[in-house]
């Protein structure tokens, strides 16, 4: 049996822990970071993600703001997963995460603690909470590419 299905309590604790003790939480005032603001008309989530890229490596990531337990925990976990990672590896994690959200087969190995969101699609309206951080990261990459082409 996959780890994720056998450890529901543990997965739940990962969410609570990241919600109550968010990792890489903070704001930097530094132009070398790309800052993405994730908010929407329909929910209260209001999250800023700041990413510093050096070549193709995520040198640093910080985030701040407010949101529901799912969006806050997701951003915290993502920040840990991508800190120090190469862009292509981060994109690969994102791809597997999105497969998990869509209920498709996915590679559990690369998702680390983000596996805790395996059940989010039981409440389909909350998928946008769980992937807010990843959508933010994708925007950050696009912004970074624009910067490179200036």
């Amino acid at each position: 049996m996959p780890f994720s299905l056998d450890h529901q309590e543990l997965l739940r604790e990962i969410i609570v822990d990241n919600y109550q003790h968010p990792r890489n939480f903070g704001e930097v005032n530094d132009d070398s970071y790309v800052t993405i603001h994730m908010d929407s008309a329909s929910c209260i989530d209001d999250i800023y993600i700041q990413v510093k890229m050096v070549s193709d490596k995520i040198e640093d990531v910080k985030w701040h703001g407010t949101g529901c337990a799912i969006s806050m925990a997701s951003t915290s976990i993502m920040s840990e997963l991508i800190l120090g990672a190469k862009k292509e590896d981060a994109l690969n994690i994102m791809k597997e995460f999105n497969k998990m959200m869509a209920g498709e087969d996915f590679d559990e190995e690369v998702l680390g603690d983000a596996i805790c969101f395996i059940n989010v699609n039981r409440q389909p309206s909350r998928i946008t909470c769980a992937n807010i951080s990843w959508r933010g990261l994708q925007k950050a990459f696009l912004e970074e590419e624009k910067k490179e082409h200036v």
């Binding site: 929910c43 989530d45 529901c68 799912i70 409440q123 309206s125 909350r126």
Partner: peptide
């Protein structure tokens, strides 16, 4: 958080 309450009630 309000949205977490609403999902739970749902």
């Amino acid at each position: 958080f309000a949205q977490d309450v609403a999902t739970y009630l749902s």
